[in-house]
Design a protein around this nucleic acid. Structure first.
Lengths: 132, 132
DNA sequence: GTAAACGTTCCACCGCACGGCAAGGTCAAG
DNA sequence: CTTGACCTTGCCGTGCGGTGGAACGTTTAC
């Protein structure tokens, strides 16, 4: 199977496939006599796995560790479980940060609605955003 | 006032100040005869404003637009209000995305707890992450 | 006079997941 | 034989907010 064909089936570009190969989330395929990449049927399954893992917010580096663990030690369930736990915690933290920022933005928005533009002092940039 | 002094008072590095100048959120200061930057008292207020605006999640590019509007048209209240509204909407969207990802991660985590590692098929990478 | 502690410019790099383009090789159809 | 569609490698650019280092000039203290 040629690269363009696989890319089409996976809904990705050939660029992405070559990038995944370099990122070691897609194994180096066989080559034809003239140097063309020649993929087997397992490649599409691998690409689907990568996409599913990305859907869970995993980076290519993290996906690579799962693949490496699998190749070295068999089913990577323990590794994946720990990875997912860490990810859930990181997401909690990130969401909390964004929610705090959202609250700050809303506070400022309300402030903007009550302040008089004419009262904006000369020497600041904007009295809606307090500097302390 | 020299750059190191201002940096210390603002709790930033000299690198950051020069970067802000290039990003046009900090005006180009006067120079001494030998070419050293020579800041006035308004600079610290400006840096505090930048930091406060960053705290509300505004990018340097957005902060620059506020400053530009202020310089061109006076108090930028209307501009800032619109900016904050757009930001609140973007934050809502981003938080919703992350929450969806978090749900997906938790679903997978629960799945990992119930699946038998020995049942992991030979030809996939990890049966915890389904490739539907 | 000299050494330390500052200052200057410019260029490169970080993570992340690709996209664009160039210069060339290969393969099938007409 | 030629055209066009495909493939190869390689290197640079993207956005964001800086950080690091090199190579060199200035100021201050002793």
């Amino acid at each position: 199977m040629r690269i363009g064909e696989l890319a089409e089936q996976a809904g990705m570009t050939t660029k992405t496939l070559r990038f995944y190969e370099q990122a070691q989330v897609l194994p180096q395929p066989a080559r034809t006599a003239s140097g063309y990449r020649d993929y087997d049927e397992t490649s599409l399954a691998r690409l689907r796995f990568v996409r599913a893992a990305q859907g869970a917010g995993l980076s290519l580096a993290e996906i690579r560790t799962i693949i490496t663990v699998r190749e070295d030690q068999g089913p990577p369930c323990g590794h994946v479980t720990a990875l997912l736990d860490r990810h859930a915690a990181a997401l909690d933290e990130r969401i909390a940060e964004l929610e705090a920022t959202r609250e700050e933005v809303r506070r400022l928005r309300d402030r903007a609605a009550t302040l008089n533009p004419a009262a904006c002092s000369e020497d600041g940039v904007c009295h809606v955003i307090p500097t302390h």
